[in-house]
């Protein structure tokens, strides 16, 4: 009995993990920005941050699932653009909005599924497989749009992006829902357990009876689906189709996932961490605007924080 309670007690022990550090960074940034700019803690700015963060957050949460399996998906930005253009084209062409959304989600999921097949069955490294998919999706986007922006979406689509629900921007609700669902999936479902097992040791997972093919397909298909969701939100926010949108999103999503404690070596990370990682990045982008910092500095700051966080994490790991 004594040992039992010991095992249980230790389980609830608080550990100062990476997410805590990232959260602390966010709080420090907020305090700093709150002092330096009166505008920072206003309702409109906070809502602004939420809207900016919604899309990036959804993509980061999707990315973290892939990264936990020691994979990567570079096609995210290009798939977002493809969905943005396809949806704009369909809606402008008279297709009902619900059907356009459904089509886009199916397409994005299918592209993810193809990534899964290429990675698992053709044994192409995820980096290369999804780099190829990135190029294909971007090319298709430019082909469909002939390189031009697509205008003429109904007002209702733009209204959705600026609308609130229960005082919180509707876009942000998507991020909350996606984060909660993915976090619960990772924590509570069999699939979630297998995702981590795959990232730690594929062969051990296989020899333990895990169907590693299905898990790989599932992870990349889920990621593709979330890129689809991101693309639809992007369409709402832009209120048009922009073939060059989404450029660099893959790096933002990877950075947010890693800031949130994901390891590219696999088996580490979670959805809430990715959420906070995205929050750090958005705070920096937003703060830089408020403080009138040359926007070109934003990326430099993000780069430094990214490297510093991971380096600190590595040092801590080596000590323990």
């Amino acid at each position: 009995m004594n040992e039992d309670s010991k095992l249980l007690k230790n389980e609830k022990r608080f550990t100062w993990n990476t997410q805590m550090i990232v959260l602390a960074v966010v709080v420090v940034l907020w305090i700093f920005l709150g002092i330096r700019s009166e505008y920072f803690f206003t309702t409109s700015n906070i809502k602004n941050i939420m809207r900016q963060m919604a899309i990036q957050g959804v993509l980061s949460v999707g990315m973290v699932v892939v990264i936990i399996t020691a994979g990567i998906d570079l096609s995210v930005g290009a798939v977002v653009a493809l969905v943005n253009i396809l949806m704009s084209k369909m809606v402008v062409g008279g297709t009902p909005i619900w059907l356009s959304i459904l089509t886009c989600l199916l397409l994005a999921s299918a592209l993810g599924f193809i990534n899964g097949i290429v990675v698992f069955d053709l044994r192409v490294p995820a980096f290369i497989a999804t780099l190829g998919m990135m190029s294909i999706a971007r090319g298709a986007t430019l082909l469909i749009s002939k390189g031009n922006n697509i205008f003429g979406l109904p007002r209702s689509i733009a209204n959705f992006a600026s609308s609130d629900f229960l005082g919180i921007p509707s876009l942000f609700w998507f991020l909350i829902i996606v984060t909660v669902i993915i976090e619960l999936m990772l924590r509570l479902t069999r699939f979630g357990r297998y995702v981590y097992a795959l990232g730690s040791n594929v062969e051990a997972a296989r020899l333990s009876g895990v169907n590693i093919r299905l898990v790989t397909y599932g992870v990349y298909t889920l990621a593709g689906f979330l890129w689809g969701v991101g693309g639809i939100l992007e369409t709402s926010r832009l209120w048009m189709g922009v073939p060059t949108t989404g450029t660099g999103y893959e790096l933002d999503a990877i950075a947010a996932a890693v800031l949130g404690g994901a390891s590219l070596f696999g088996a580490e990370g979670n959805a809430i961490g990715a959420f906070f990682g995205a929050l750090v990045m958005i705070t920096i982008y937003n703060g830089a605007v408020l403080l009138n910092i040359n926007p070109f500095w934003q990326r430099i700051i993000v780069g430094i924080i990214l490297i510093a966080t991971v380096a600190v994490d590595q040092i801590r790991k080596r000590r323990s």
Binding site: Y196, L207, G209, E268
Partner: peptide
């Protein structure tokens, strides 16, 4: 190399072959 998912915890490793049996609907 083949027996354990070294980065995961004791509980996760022990249950790896039986997750299909301990739960409902995934």
């Amino acid at each position: 190399q083949h027996g354990l998912a070294l980065k995961l915890n004791v509980k996760h490793n022990i249950n790896l072959p039986v997750y299909e049996k301990i739960g409902k609907m995934g």
